[in-house]
Design a protein around this nucleic acid. Structure first.
Lengths: 332, 332
DNA sequence: AAATTGAAGTTAAACGTTTTCCTAAAAATG
DNA sequence: CATTTTTAGGAAAACGTTTAACTTCAATTT
């Protein structure tokens, strides 16, 4: 490796024949300069190809103009959309967004965040993480926000209410006339319990049955593997709700290849409203959890916090039912 | 904001009654210590909740143990998979991976990379970027790798050969018996030209016609919007190749809702083999471009470069044809 | 014309680490 | 027991910036 050292402010100063302070002020545009100095600086800078070292700058200013976002799994389009929303707002406000993927591994999150924290002005964590980590974060000298967590009074939280999301979907399905519900959840996610609560809150008063199953990872493949267990029961559900759209799509696909007609033999619904849900056959009914808006809102809030405008700690977005053909059955 | 300063090495040193050099050596495990000092240090550190400031560390060591990856669009599952592969290898080798999304905007890439460069030990750029930026990167004091670029002799490049990818697909389709080809490309991507070359190389000798169309962004929606133009032509193609799976899926979906039977009226094929292609109806024929392997390989290479093991500059992976129902037509 | 103000630049400390020498004491050697 | 070697720990410089405080010197005011 022919590893050339990057030119520093010192090199520029020397070449231009001024002090490093002057260079600093020039690149940050903090003062006016005589024509002569300005020319020399401009020339020196692009002769050397100088650009500021963000690290050194961050050290002394204490500001990085970067924000960190840790997500559970970038392969899940829900998170991609959160990132999209957040990124757009960050860039528009002069911040960089650094995304890290925790690979659905709650254990590894602490070192990841410890690495990320000093490099950023604020942290967004899109996952339920252990309490000791949450506490460590809350004690940090940086604004922190959580996504998909229940509200806490000491940290900013943005997202939809899991109970409400599940209830909304259940309500619609009950009204459609479905009688036997299956829920294929992901018990490792802590909001799974909230979703179950939401379902039960609607289904119990309506007197409909709920069978609960579990999946070991929130993916298409897991859905595929899981669905046979559900369909082969004597009291087979007439509608199956997946932990998220990925799981629902996997289940729906496998059900069809097992010869079930969707939605006539069995209906499917998901949660998240990822873009692809519109393109599967039949198009998937789901609940929009405002993925992109979540990213946008949390980024706006955290930037406001960084810039010292006080902010409310919690913010709940309104989920929206997205009705598509996967649940449009004619009941006779 | 009740902004507590993070405890520094100095705080720890004072609390433990030793010098900061000792603390540094302790946290980096570079020396043995007397029992007394070791106890005091351990206690002080977790009493204060101290953790190293990666910024300061990076300043003096010149190493960040982080690698930056800039992708065109995180919402595209192809890139998500690249990230997945890269992340896994990075973590396994003690590096952090910071991902930034350039939002399909070539213009904004330079400042993004300038921000990323000093914070990382190496940079991976998953996009064709303007030559001046490429040159700037190549002159940097860091290992740099490109994805999806044609090979260059001065920088590391990993990926499949676009010409070969297109040719592979065309070959199979010709052999299937398709006679009129449509290609809906994305001319803003510079590998579009390579793919066209690959198609022509196969189609011209075979004497089959090729109609070329263009899409203004590589998404489902753009595919949807584009397909009518193709289908309404008097010399309608009997097979349509999309710039990538996303475009192909959008087109296929819209074609079906316009009443076309796939693959009997018109067949579709994509490129990338994103996970969802298996789940659409009919399942999509495509070419696997080794998304995840690309991420893994490039990360291994760049880590080797960082750690000063010399590496070859270019590496081409073998694409694989994935045959599914979207092109399985019975020719009579 | 003397005094005041303002503009353009400079000096030096600071940010939180690591690391190269040093020193002093302890342990090993003869 | 005197000498040498090893070990545990410390002092201070360095990394590339920003910024507060200061100096000049020219322009304005009285």
């Amino acid at each position: 490796m022919n590893r050339r050292r990057r030119p520093t402010i010192r090199d520029v100063a020397e070449k231009a024949g001024v002090s490093i302070a002057t260079v600093s002020k020039y690149v940050n545009g903090q003062q006016s300069f005589s024509q002569a100095v300005e020319d020399k600086l401009r020339d020196a800078i692009d002769a050397l190809g100088y650009s500021q070292n963000a690290l050194a700058r961050a050290m002394v200013t204490g500001r990085t103009t970067a924000i960190g976002l840790a997500v559970m799994d970038l392969a899940n389009p829900h998170y991609s959309n959160v990132v999209k929303g957040a990124n757009r707002v960050a860039l528009a406000n002069g911040y960089n967004l650094f995304v890290v993927d925790m690979e659905e591994s709650i254990a590894a999150v602490r070192p990841l965040l410890e690495a990320l924290a000093p490099r950023t002005d604020g942290l967004i964590v899109s996952a339920r993480i252990p309490n000791d980590v949450t506490d460590w974060l809350a004690e940090l000298d940086k604004p922190v926000a959580f996504l998909g967590q229940p509200e806490r009074d000491d940290v900013l939280t943005v997202g939809t209410d899991s109970v409400q999301v599940a209830a909304l979907l259940a309500q619609y399905l009950v009204r459609q006339g479905f009688k036997r519900f299956g829920y294929v959840g992901y018990s490792r996610a802590s909001s799974n319990a909230d979703r179950l609560r939401g379902l039960r809150r609607v289904l119990e008063p309506a007197g409909v049955e709920l069978l609960v199953f579990d999946v070991d990872e929130p993916t298409n493949e897991a859905g595929e593997r899981a669905v046979a267990r559900v369909l082969l029961r004597p009291d087979r559900p007439d509608v199956i709700i997946g932990w998220n759209d990925l799981v629902a799509i996997g289940m729906m696909n496998e059900a069809r290849s097992l010869g079930f007609k969707v939605p006539d033999d069995v209906a499917f619904a998901g949660i998240d409203n990822i873009p692809i849900s519109r393109y599967v056959t039949p198009p998937l009914t789901t609940v929009d959890v405002c993925s992109q808006a979540t990213g946008e809102v949390v980024m706006k809030k955290i930037i406001a916090m960084i810039e010292d405008k006080p902010q409310p700690t919690g913010l709940t977005l309104e989920p929206a039912l997205i009705i598509r053909e996967s649940t449009q059955r004619q009941f006779t």
